[in-house]
C-alpha cells in the first residue's frame, strides 16, 4: 500500500480513497438534492454544502462512531461524513417516513444518534453549547469520546460561541470547535460582521490552541483535525480549527445568488474544488490510480441513484404519527 508524506500526513491508499469517496458522496448527494428541489420534490429548505466538503470529511476522518458531532443548518455534509446513510438523508429531505428523522425534520433537523450525529439545527449557535455539554458528559463518565461542533463564521459573533468555548476551555473538555469560515452569513460578509476576521486568533482569548487551515484542502484539514481530536481524546482539552472555504451554491436552493458576491469570485472558488484537487494530488503522488478513482466515482453514482430512488418511492409518514415522541417513555 502506498504511503504519502505530504501536507504533513502519512496517507494510505485506503485512507485517501475514503477521503475522496466521502467528499464525492456529499457532492453527488447534494447535486441530486438540488435537482430534486428544482423539480419540486423537496417541500422545505435545502442548504447545500457544495464546495465545503473537505472540512466535514477531513474532521470526521479522525472520529469514531461513538464520537459525536453537532451540526448546523448546512449539515448534510456533516451527517454523511459521520456515517449517516445517503438514502435516509435524501428521504428525510423528501419528507418521507424512511428519513433519518422519520420526516419530522428535513434538511435542518437530521438526527442519527446511532452514528453520533446529534442533530443539524435551524438556529445558529446552540450546537456549540451542546457540543460542549457532550464533552462534559464524556469527562464525567470518564470515556475517551470526543465531541465536535461545526459552525460557520456567522456563529462566532454569537454569544453561544463565547460561552461554549470558554466553558470547554476552563474545564478542559474533550471538544473540537470547527469553524467553517465561508465568508458569508447568508449574504452578510464576515468582514462586515467583525473587526477581526481571523477566527482562529480568538482561541487565544480563551487560552486554547487555534489554527487556520485551507478549508478546501482536505489533507490540511485532516492534519489539523487529527491534532485537535488527539488532544481532546487524551485529556488535553478543546481546540479551535478554522477552515477558510466558500460555498459555491446559493445560501439555499431556490434563492438568488447575486448582489453580495460576484460571478468571478464564485468561479474562482469553483476552480479550487477540493475534490478535483485531491484527485490530482493522489494521481501525482501515486497514491491512487485513475482506475481506483473511477471505481469510487462509479460507486458513488450508484449510491446516489439508489438514494434518489429510495427517497422517491418511500412512503410518507402516517399523519397520526405527527405528535409522537414529544415526551420520553417515562
Amino acid at each position: 500500500m502506498s504511503v504519502v508524506t505530504g501536507g504533513g500526513l502519512d496517507l494510505t491508499t485506503e485512507q485517501a480513497l475514503w477521503l475522496l469517496r466521502e467528499m464525492l458522496r456529499i457532492r453527488r448527494v447534494e447535486e441530486a438534492l438540488a435537482r430534486s428541489y428544482a423539480q419540486g420534490l423537496i417541500p422545505g429548505a435545502c442548504h447545500t454544502y457544495v464546495g465545503q466538503e473537505a472540512i466535514a470529511v477531513g474532521v470526521c476522518a479522525h472520529l469514531r462512531s461513538d464520537d459525536v458531532v453537532f451540526s448546523t443548518h448546512r449539515g448534510h455534509g456533516h451527517a454523511l461524513a459521520k456515517g449517516a446513510p445517503a438514502r435516509e438523508v435524501m428521504a428525510e429531505l423528501f419528507g418521507k417516513a424512511t428519513g433519518v428523522s422519520k420526516g419530522r425534520g428535513g434538511s435542518m433537523h437530521l438526527f442519527v444518534p446511532e452514528v453520533g450525529l446529534m442533530g443539524t439545527t435551524g438556529i445558529v449557535g446552540p450546537n456549540i453549547l451542546q457540543a460542549t455539554g457532550a464533552g462534559y458528559s464524556f469527562q464525567l463518565m470518564k470515556t475517551d469520546q470526543v465531541s465536535v461542533a461545526f459552525f460557520g463564521d456567522g456563529a462566532v459573533n454569537n454569544g453561544a460561541f463565547h460561552e461554549g468555548v470558554n466553558m470547554a476551555a476552563i474545564w478542559a473538555l474533550p471538544v473540537v470547535f470547527v469553524c467553517e469560515n465561508n465568508q458569508f452569513a447568508t449574504e452578510v460578509p464576515f468582514d462586515y460582521a467583525t473587526r477581526n476576521t481571523d477566527v482562529a486568533e480568538r482561541a487565544r482569548a480563551y487560552g486554547i490552541p487555534g489554527v487556520t487551515v485551507d478549508g478546501n484542502d482536505v489533507l490540511a484539514v485532516s492534519e489539523a483535525a487529527q491534532a485537535a481530536v488527539e488532544r481532546a481524546r487524551s485529556g488535553g482539552g478543546p481546540s479551535l480549527v478554522e477552515g477558510r472555504t466558500y460555498r459555491t451554491r446559493p445560501h439555499a436552493e431556490g434563492m438568488r445568488d447575486g448582489g453580495y458576491r460576484t460571478v468571478e469570485e464564485i468561479d474562482a472558488w469553483k476552480q479550487r474544488d477540493p475534490i478535483a484537487d485531491l484527485e490530482v494530488r493522489l494521481l501525482d503522488r501515486g497514491i491512487a490510480t485513475q482506475e481506483q478513482i473511477d471505481a469510487v466515482r462509479q460507486e458513488i453514482e450508484e449510491v446516489v441513484a439508489d438514494g434518489l430512488e429510495f427517497a422517491k418511492t418511500s412512503p410518507y409518514p402516517e399523519p397520526d404519527t405527527a405528535a409522537l415522541h414529544i415526551y420520553g417513555a417515562s
Binding site: 446529534m118 456549540i128 453549547l129 451542546q130 457532550a134 458528559s137 464525567l140 454569544g159 453561544a160
Partner: peptide, 16 residues
C-alpha cells in the same frame, strides 16, 4: 445562563 443551559442540553443528549 444561556451557556450552561445549552451545555446541559448537550450533556443530557449524551448520557448524563
Amino acid at each position: 445562563e444561556r451557556g450552561f443551559i445549552g451545555m446541559c442540553t448537550g450533556a443530557a443528549m449524551t448520557g448524563t
